[in-house]
Design a protein around this nucleic acid. Structure first.
Lengths: 358, 358
DNA sequence: CTGAAAGCGCTAACAC
DNA sequence: GTGTTAGCGCTTTCAG
């Protein structure tokens, strides 16, 4: 069935009447801000369910002084070459979680510009909080939000001066898993393609853990920094790597887009994948899935990242943000093994997806 | 100077006091919903200005029954290969205009999925309206929004059954300008790279107008459909085109990303740009600007498109949407001439940017 | 042309 | 453990 069913949405008073209690009680059942007897509680919940009750966002906002709007910024503007097919996944999960909690978004630019009334927005206190995805350390917005005391949660850590709440992948574990997998498949000289500038925590993390792990294994780390996250940059980096005397037999790329470029380079140079060269990407995007051969990739678990980011915001807003006390959350990645590293001919395998660790 | 200045934002009552009138009058001045004497009006405006007054979105929403939230959907999810660096520009302008009018966004997925509580959102939280950017004709969302009577404005026309309000570029004029320019520069056999599926009005428009114009000039239209909007697809299409006996001496690509691919193909085949081949892109993105040589491109005037889309929404909401009466707005593009078509060695030129035509 | 006052739906003192 | 009630800031009848 389809189409609108409730001509007039249920109000809190309707629920109260239906459950035979006062609206106060309904309010408290829904917010759990004061104890309610189990019986009453259940009656209210049932009534709310029956009437498909949803609090009116505006009314709640007016009463609590909240706006129910969150700032949202992600690496798009001015850095188009960083466009990452993983963002859509993340945005989807952020939006789903936000909708669930009654929040909507104000899309924020990474840098101030005359076109966007940023100051006026902040001045009039219209944001309850803000979520910044992969903020570069040169991000203009973060210091500004701090000045205006807007609680900020970043997805990926901010490397600038300010401290923020954050949720991030555990990239050390991720790289460890990749290297273990490559070793198992008999690859001996893995190389890493990262990014030409270290403005993202993600890049720093994968470089560091790759270096550490490789050196621990008694090998010299092969790391090359690509221009950007594009296929082209991946291609260029791969060509350089594969031209070396001690050429790598496996390449880990910072993102799937680059990995696609690596694949192209291998193809062009007549290097067979996965036999002569293993390739690993990151993002678990369609790019990796649809490649030929399909690419082994690190799944950052975007859905989890998004949900946790919103959860942190809610926690801060509900608890009345003790300043200085930062909430940080690590989400484990998942290694998705596909043909691009399946040297042994074993079928694809997928590592278990653990829950976020607190 | 920086940081929060107003500890307590001004309320409508403050403005009323400051101007020596009632809050009713202030409200009416701001909404122009009933006549107010010029004197009083000015006094109120001045007071509001002085106090930097901004209406509280939640309060207004409560009083009017609006949510002040707009659905926003653009081609990201599930169609990652369509990622277009022009979207960030458009999103920026949409967001700026929305903020100005007090609106925030709920990011909507193009297709229903179990992860996103779309039905529940529509049942309850009621969006005031929705903006769909380049909706494909197979878009799931549009029919759903219709069923729930959410006013929809599309950027680019929707080719499915339903009619919507829309704002769109005038692609016929755009292609005309490009062809004129190419002819001036002495190019005689222009070809067009479009998209493999006709699900977007944009693609239909440029193909049609290219065909019409070329045939009118007594030539056979050379049109090839690329796989997607990626550099790779542009490259592949260009290689095919440049392999023909009657090979084109100019290529117009549907988007800048493809045009970059065309450039790569020319380079690889040893075809000089702009001498042997002229290249034109679309989007006026950094991709075109930073290419070597810089690419001539069609500027869709994203800022104007975004502002107009929001303006239409506001008009519908304010006027009380007479159903059936669709608002449509055409925004003229601008041709940005750069080296990739500068055969005559003349410096870059830019066509004037006309205002939106009503 | 202008004002007073009654809500809009919810939260949170303040009672009991 | 539960209910009464006074706002939150704005729009909008209804009076004047």
């Amino acid at each position: 069935m389809r189409g609108p069913s409730n001509p007039r949405p249920a109000r809190i008073a309707d629920v109260a009447r239906e459950a035979g209690v006062s609206i106060t009680t309904v309010s408290h059942v829904l917010s759990s801000k004061r104890p309610v007897s189990a019986q009453t509680r259940q009656a209210v919940l049932d009534a709310a369910q029956r009437l498909a009750y949803r609090p009116t966002v505006a009314a709640r906002g007016l009463a609590t002084g909240r706006t129910m709007a969150l700032g949202l910024q992600f690496p798009m503007e001015g850095e188009h070459l960083l466009l990452n097919p993983y963002f859509p996944l993340l945005l989807g999960s952020l939006s789903a979680a936000a909708v669930h909690d009654g929040y909507s978004f104000v899309l924020l630019p990474a840098r101030r510009s005359s076109e966007f009334p940023l100051e006026s927005l902040l001045e009039t206190q219209r944001l309850d909080g803000a979520i910044l995805v992969d903020p570069s350390s040169t991000n203009d917005l973060l210091p500004l939000l701090r000045d205006y005391r807007v609680p900020v949660v970043t997805v990926g850590r901010y490397l600038g001066r300010a401290r923020t709440h954050w949720v991030d992948n555990d990239h050390a574990i991720a790289i460890g898993r990749v290297l273990d997998h490559l070793a198992e498949q008999g690859y001996r000289r893995p190389a890493l393609i990262s990014l030409g500038h270290e403005r993202y925590s993600y890049i720093v993390d994968i470089e560091d853990s790759f270096r550490t792990r490789t050196e621990a294994a008694g090998r010299e780390p092969m790391v090359i920094r690509a221009e950007d996250l594009s296929e082209r940059a991946g291609y260029d980096a791969a060509v350089t790597l594969l031209d070396r005397a001690d050429r790598p037999d496996a390449i880990i790329a910072a993102v799937d887009r680059q990995a696609i470029g690596v694949l192209g380079a291998a193809e062009e140079l007549g290097i067979s994948v996965p036999d002569e060269l293993g390739i690993v990407g990151e993002g678990d995007t369609v790019l990796a899935r649809n490649a030929n051969p399909p690419l082994t990739t690190i799944d950052p678990r975007a859905a989890e990242l998004g949900a946790q980011a919103i959860a942190i915001i809610r926690q801060i807003l509900d608890a009345g943000n003790r300043p200085g006390r930062m909430i940080t959350l690590t989400v484990e990645t998942r290694l998705v093994v596909r043909e691009s590293t399946a040297r042994s001919g074993a079928g694809p395998e997928i590592s278990p997806a653990p829950a976020a660790s607190p």
